[in-house]
Amino acid sequence: MATGTATVPTSGAPAQQRVATTEPWLVRGMLTVTALGFLGLFLLMPLVGVFAQALAKGWGVYLQSFRDPDALAAIRLTLFTAAVAVPMSTAFGLAAAWAIGKFQFRGKNVLITLIDLPFTVSPVVAGLVFVLIFGRNGWLGPWLQAHGIQIIYAVPGIVLVTLFVTFPFVARELIPLMQAQGTEEEEAARVLGASGWHTFWRVTLPNVKWALLYGVILCNARAMGEFGAVSVVSGHIRGNTNTMPLQVEILYNDYNFVAAFSIASLLAVLALVTLVLKSVFEWKVARQLALAERIEDAEESLS
């Protein structure tokens, strides 16, 4: 609270807030307790459970879990998949958001709807679609086989489905911001003689950088955590096509509970780091969005 009031220069806001909540303390208290109880039950307890199980037999056994070659292969594959899928999703998201936010064209709404498709399709269906396309009996199956290319049940398939499920994240973050910011600054840059590429790097990109990073973080979280779609195209070859989430399931079913929860704890740590970064970027994005809207309002009231 103290830092909040210190950095927000608009005076009088805290006083208004105090007046705005007029419910009796009992209602407020009950609501708070309910919310906290839910949080503890559904978020904190499972998280603690993961670490408790992982450390059930001590640190030695816990660390041993990460020395297993199959576990290392799973971690490597997960990082590789994210390292390929995230930059590609980012590039696509930027291009799509730029096109939608800065230009008027026919079929724009269709494009927006299409971008949302991976959000609405069940991951299992997404995986099966890729089997239908690239599987031995799929549309491209015979051609791929004739050329000795393996997509499904190999690393390319895993990267492809991950790309599919992470496609919308960056675009979804950027579109509202770019639409709110409008095209005035770009126009100004062009009038002052900047080239298109120059304008993009010096004006457009810096304006959306926090939203972009926020989208990248979300995209990365999903890329590392995806289970359903990857499971369909993985083939579950140990030490070869298992990502971390798949490895967790396998170890659990192997009666190897400590190792399963050790890998799960690593995923949880990654998620926590993501969460912290996300909050930071979210805050920055909110500020940027508010700023863009304020400028827009100011312009409107001027005209």
């Binding site: 089997v131 799929g138 086989q145 499904i152 049940y153 083939g235």
Partner: peptide, 8 residues
């Protein structure tokens, strides 16, 4: 099923 679909 996986072998039919191309698991080698």
């Amino acid at each position: 099923r996986a072998v039919i679909d191309g698991l080698e």
